[in-house]
Design a protein around this nucleic acid. Structure first.
Lengths: 211, 211
DNA sequence: ACAGCCTCTAAGCGCTTGCTCACCCTCGGG
DNA sequence: CCCGAGGGTGAGCAAGCGCTTAGAGGCTGT
């Protein structure tokens, strides 16, 4: 089955939300689930609600997904993959540590703001996953942590950053970015780009870079 | 069995865990609910689970609380009151803006780490409240926002801080502090005091204060 | 044409949920 | 001694839950 790669790079303009989910009906169900989970939370969402949003009968869900938890897992997995990829591609680019940190925070935050419904599910419904699926996802988060910590360490080694507590600052930077998914609102006055720029600036200050 | 052994005293203030909840049985139920909500979330917690943790039958809950949602409201209200009071007393103290900001962040974070089970319910189960209760709580959060923004504005006016975007930075500071409740773990290697100190330092850097 | 397959539905099963109700216990004041 | 009041319980109700099953409908290849 699975054709592969999850990576569909958002080049410049177009963006197809969940293109990698292949049977069209399965994609509709998944999109409906993301909306419902983000709005009411996993446990408060019923399978009937998901199917209803997708314009299908409750039973249709079980043709494409074994359980409601599998739906959450798929969402969480794809979302984490995408978030991690975004972080990494910025972190592994060329340039000074300050430039890479700035780019990583900017794009990571922009994703959390722009896809805040998905991000909310991805970041805040982790406990609803079964034990096995959860450990799989936790491993992905460890990799996000490692990516950020690496930039900080390199910045310190190069004398660019002044960071007394690298693990603690790594935690704080990621926490700051992730929490964007909680408060960001499309009707608010800031665009994802603006929040990304603001946060990149704030994080550079946290590591002692003057502008 | 359960004696009132839960007394965690924070030096510097008279504080009994949930002393203001008056019938003893009601207090036990509320403490049980905080634990359960923090562990599994509001919607995944059953009234039977809460009653069971308090050593009572499921029906006992309804002698002291009209609904499960009222329990959440009581917890949320008391928790927000306490968090806001902690923020305010630091914010309205004497001293420079930098000193007050540092103290506010330190104590706010310390509370979120030390009482992370309560804080998790208070900060992340807001959507589970009914409409009326939610707007009441949202007003309290607006006041937290105002308290922090005031310090930032005063610091900028006094020339202590360099903050281009005061509302945005206010949001970021509060977001950073609040998210502590999500990741903090008692078994981790940091104490609430250490996290508070680290975060106070990071926030001072965010507003452009050199140490 | 039609068999084989996949998608989707109507109906519903077994179970759990939030919550209720009739009744029992304990206890202080006459 | 009885009394009434209020905290507590066992049993259980109506509703809603995740999920299953039997079968209808519509493609495709021969």
């Amino acid at each position: 089955m699975g054709t592969a790669d999850v990576t569909e790079e958002t080049a410049g303009g177009e963006e197809k939300p969940w293109g990698e989910v292949t049977p069209e009906a399965a994609r509709r169900l998944l999109v409906a689930a993301v909306e419902a989970f983000a709005e009411r939370g996993y446990h408060a969402t019923t399978t009937r609600d998901i199917a209803g949003r997708a314009g299908m009968s409750p039973a249709a869900l079980y043709i494409h997904y074994k359980t409601k938890e599998e739906l959450l897992h798929r969402i969480s997995r794809i979302g984490h993959d995408k978030a991690l990829e975004i972080l990494r591609s910025a972190a592994e680019a060329e340039g000074s540590a300050a430039e890479r940190l700035s780019a990583a925070v900017r794009s990571f935050v922009r994703w959390h703001a722009g896809h805040h419904t998905t991000a909310r599910v991805v970041q805040y419904e982790l406990d609803a996953l079964g034990a096995e699926h959860r450990t799989e996802i936790v491993e992905l988060r460890r990799q996000s942590d490692a990516a950020v910590r690496r930039i900080l360490n390199e910045g310190v080694a190069a004398g660019e950053f002044d960071v007394p507590d690298v693990p603690g600052t790594t935690l704080a930077v990621l926490s700051l970015c992730i929490d964007v998914a909680r408060w960001f609102n499309t009707e608010g006055r800031r665009t994802p780009d603006e929040v990304g720029a603001l946060y990149a600036d704030l994080v550079l200050r946290m590591v002692g870079v003057q502008k």
